[in-house]
């Protein structure tokens, strides 16, 4: 009895002492301006492991390694798809004094922006910075220690792509996960574009992978064509969409290559790897002190590729128009 009392008290004391010691701890003051340093530490916070996000992280790391070689080291942490964990990770980066934080996905960016006002933060795989950071009248430059790249695909061209493939279709079902802010944004935008082209659009939102099949089935029953934005939940469950839409002979158009490879007919895709490389090049400029991050506007993917899924096109009896390349099987 007595023993456990002491253990408890000691632990309590330790907790308090550690908390206090931490309070006094100074973050290391590393200068960011001018010249190259001997070594750089870059913290990467990624919302969840997922093909597109992984590629962006890979591209980012490759670009930095190309510029700095062994002088740059990475601390890559995943937040297990839990937004609150992003804050924990961002806190550990800031307190260990990394030279730069790369935030992959919206809530990672929000947590990193909350965590620091000094350390440069570069986001990627974020669709709209104005929305993600709640900036009214967003001008394209955040203006503080935050900048990055957007994964926004050209939504008007995607709408035009649907018209190119299916000129006779009348109704388009927009399928997405209601838990993803980016998907909502894209679906709203693409709906405007499609309605401008004379299509009737209906949004089909599912809340998670559990009711995805039922919602997809409804969408397939009531639509001539289905459009899926760059939705993370669809990306991880593309086979559900494929198993419903392929037998029903409903073509699916996707916002990115990964989803298209799983369940889509065609896509006008950005390469997340290239997007990561673009982000990495921005990071190099910031770390070398060649550019002031508060002056750097949000950058976009360097190029878009028109791609189609050969297996699904064959099954549905569709012939791709000119200029589309087949997605290679992995």
């Amino acid at each position: 009895m007595k023993h456990s009392w002491r253990a408890g008290a000691a632990l309590l004391a330790l907790t308090m002492a550690a908390g206090l010691a931490g309070c006094g701890g100074q973050t290391s003051d590393k200068t960011q301006s001018g010249g190259e340093k001997d070594s750089y530490t870059v913290g990467i916070v990624q919302l969840t492991p997922h093909e597109a996000l992984d590629q962006a992280t890979q591209g980012f790391q490759d670009a930095l390694k190309e510029a700095f070689g062994d002088k740059v080291s990475f601390d890559l942490e995943y937040a297990a798809n839990d937004p609150a964990t992003c804050a924990t990770i961002a806190n550990s980066f800031v307190s260990s004094g990394v030279d730069l934080i790369m935030a992959n996905a919206s809530s990672a960016l929000q947590a990193a922006a909350s965590a620091t006002g000094d350390i440069p933060v570069l986001g990627t795989s974020v669709t709209e910075y104005g929305v993600a950071l709640k900036i009214d009248d967003f001008s394209g430059t955040v203006g503080t220690n935050v900048s990055g790249t957007s994964d926004l695909a050209p939504l008007d061209q995607q709408a035009a792509m649907i018209q190119e493939w299916c000129p006779d279709a009348k109704t388009v079902g927009l399928l997405y996960c209601s838990a993803e802010a980016n998907s909502q944004y894209q679906v709203d935008t693409v709906q405007e574009c499609l309605e401008g082209l004379g299509y009737t659009c209906t949004q089909y939102a599912f809340s998670d992978s559990n009711d995805m099949a039922a919602v997809t089935q409804t969408a397939a029953d009531n639509s001539d064509v289905i459009y899926v934005p760059t939705d993370n939940t669809v990306a991880t469950n593309a086979s559900i969409v494929d198993n419903i839409c392929r037998p029903a002979k409903i073509p699916v158009f996707a916002g990115e290559q990964g989803i298209c490879a799983g369940c889509g007919v065609a896509t006008l895709s950005i390469s997340y790897y290239d997007l990561g490389v673009t982000t990495g090049k921005m990071a190099v400029k910031v770390l070398r002190g060649e550019a002031d991050i508060s002056q750097m506007p949000i950058e976009y993917a360097p190029q878009f590729t028109k791609m189609y899924n050969k297996a699904i096109c064959d099954d549905l009896g569709l012939t791709p128009p000119e200029g589309y390349t087949a997605i290679e099987a992995e």
Partner: peptide, 15 residues
């Protein structure tokens, strides 16, 4: 370990 100590105030706040 120093990183951990520096990160503690944040962790304690969140806790």
């Amino acid at each position: 370990m120093l990183d951990f100590l520096n990160a503690l105030p944040g962790a304690v706040s969140q806790g």
